[in-house]
């Protein structure tokens, strides 16, 4: 489906057009869900967080000032909803010092992925991303998937510029490390 600009639907929703909100949800649900999953690490919780965030966004849509992008505003709601739900379980345990950076594999080619079937590749990539720490997963998803810039990520997560850069650096290293690890496990399983 070809979607129009978010503002087009927002104006309609504010005039009471509920189907336009359904289109907005359809347009953004995958990224919202993915973001929630990066924090919750659980599909059921991610679904609940995503729905909760969309309800909150609907109820406060008239306060959206359009000073930033709609997605930045929406992801901030998702992030806060997820973090407040999982604060005790996960986020408080996060610390910038507790994760040793894996050995550098920068520039190395992940040969195993090239020869795999698309479905299998997707499964392995998904597994590797899910093994990242919550904040690394969120920052990486926002940066690489949603293509938010660092300033927008600052606005969404409340993290500082340098923290985000550190998380991106660690996330990149850890993702490649996890991919290699999973690929080795796969090969061992086959053998």
């Amino acid at each position: 489906m070809n979607y129009r600009e978010d503002n087009f639907y927002i104006k309609k929703v504010l005039k009471g057009n509920l189907p336009s909100y359904a289109i907005l949800v359809e347009k953004h649900k995958s990224l919202v869900y993915t973001l929630a999953l990066r924090i919750s690490k659980n599909h059921e919780d991610a679904e609940e967080i995503g729905q909760d965030a969309f309800l909150k966004a609907y109820n406060s849509l008239n306060t959206f000032k359009q000073e930033s992008k709609f997605t930045t505003w929406l992801y901030k709601i998702v992030y806060n909803t997820a973090v407040s739900r999982f604060r005790k379980k996960h986020i408080e345990s996060f610390s910038m010092e507790d994760s040793p950076i894996q050995e550098s594999i920068q520039g190395e080619h992940i040969d195993g992925l090239d020869i795999m079937h698309h479905k299998e590749r997707k499964k392995i990539i998904s597994e590797a991303i899910s093994r990242l720490k919550e904040d690394e997963g969120v920052v990486m998803t926002l940066f690489y998937l949603s293509e938010n810039n660092i300033k927008e990520i600052e606005e969404i997560t409340g993290l500082t510029n340098s923290n985000i850069k550190i998380l991106l650096h660690r996330g990149r290293k850890n993702l490649l490390f996890e991919l290699k690890k999973i690929l080795k496990e796969e090969i061992v399983d086959i053998l």
């Binding site: 995958s30 990224l31 995503g50 729905q51 969309f54 392995i124 990539i125 998904s126």
Partner: peptide, 23 residues
């Protein structure tokens, strides 16, 4: 490389009833 990895396998999909449930 990271960008292509995320493009390929980074996006997850919620259940089919996700939108209906919200509405």
């Amino acid at each position: 490389v990271i960008k292509s990895i995320f493009d390929e396998g980074g996006l997850e999909k919620p259940s089919d009833s996700f939108t209906n449930s919200i509405i």
